[in-house]
Design a protein around this nucleic acid. Sequence first.
DNA 1: ATATCATTCAATTATTTAATTGAATGATTG
DNA 2: CAATCATTCAATTAAATAATTGAATGATAT
Lengths: 228, 228
Amino acid sequence: MSEATPHSFFAELAELARGLGHAHRLLLLDHIAQNEHSVERLAEFAGLSLANASQHLQHLKRAGFVTTRRDGKRILYRLGDGPTAPLLAALKSQAAFNHTQLTTFIADSRSRPDRLEAIDAEELLRRMRENSVTLLDVRAETEYAVGHVPGAVNIPLPELERRLAELRKDQEVIAYCRGPHCALSAEAVRALSAKGYKARHFDSGLPGWQALGLATSSLQSSGSKAGL
Amino acid sequence: MSEATPHSFFAELAELARGLGHAHRLLLLDHIAQNEHSVERLAEFAGLSLANASQHLQHLKRAGFVTTRRDGKRILYRLGDGPTAPLLAALKSQAAFNHTQLTTFIADSRSRPDRLEAIDAEELLRRMRENSVTLLDVRAETEYAVGHVPGAVNIPLPELERRLAELRKDQEVIAYCRGPHCALSAEAVRALSAKGYKARHFDSGLPGWQALGLATSSLQSSGSKAGL
DNA sequence: ATATCATTCAATTATTTAATTGAATGATTG
DNA sequence: CAATCATTCAATTAAATAATTGAATGATAT
């Protein structure tokens, strides 16, 4: 392990990422995230030998994901003070997204770039104030949990058809997802329209909403600029 | 590469993390994040052979971080539609945090768990309304960028001593960081008090603030619950 | 069609990373 | 202060991941 010379900035980031790059470590980390545990308990939990568990734990520790303290003759591992939880959440979001990608036939929608009716921020804001629209967040649950437009209903696209009943048919539905490149909401509008709903999408998605300074949360906005 | 059977959920996450686990891939990803590029351009940029770059790019693609489209006879890589940017931001945050950890002597503060004066959310809110406090965010710049309490000044802990001049001495300073476990703000209060400032910390940090539904942003809140 | 050209594949070698074993550490407790 | 016990270290073997080479695709464009 290159503790000595993490040459570039990216090498350093990569090292961190590799810290999460093993199922056993993630399992351990998850368990630790819920409670402080001794090495022995963790090894048993994960079904690993003591030495092996210890090594994985030290790996996590080096990366700053966990810290230790001594209690009597055992050493307890707990989550570090760093932003590990958000990092895990983000990782999980990405996984969730990949699932929706698979479950859905985005490729299809992507190949016919028909212009769907969009709503702009200004009109959306007005309509929300007068409560004349249903806002629909079609991203994965995990992404929704991480941050969403206040008042939005969350129905991940793959579940949309099954959960249509949750949407009022007497109001226009405005779907949104991750922004201009994200095809989920367009797909949702297509599906809803086919079912007789009046639907449009909010093209700039959550990031666009955040730009207005109104969102509840999320990292979405800050991308990479100078150095990632 | 195990495309076939990502056995557990964690194995799947680990595979994703490993996708970011190499400096070359991060470098490529960063470049792609800024603009669509052909394989050739990317290979040249990163100083890699074509085949090697191609392999790394495919790795990124499999993980869902990037997508491709064809333009004439070249293939262009661009960022995927998934929450890749937040994921990178989170990774970067963690790296930034690790740096502050090294530069700082938190270990020290942790070993003497003296109770510092804290301020609760209610009082803080009141004092902010009447503009009688300076709110100080002592986390890394990257974390601040990702989300912070409106009106807070950002001075990363390691720089605090050097930048004291930026803080008014006639107002109480309220420092905050990542929450109850985070020792940065406590350390800041200690340092400020030593310099003659009137200082307290807001113990529940950014997450606590978000709980009030007032923060500008951030993933911080959602931790791991049931399954990571 | 067929030649062209960017990209990908396939097969090899080199390098990292994981698991296993058994011994060493080092703080605690009698 | 010596014995104990959880944890870590060190050394080995096994497995996974990177880089290199040269050949194969497969869509374009003449």
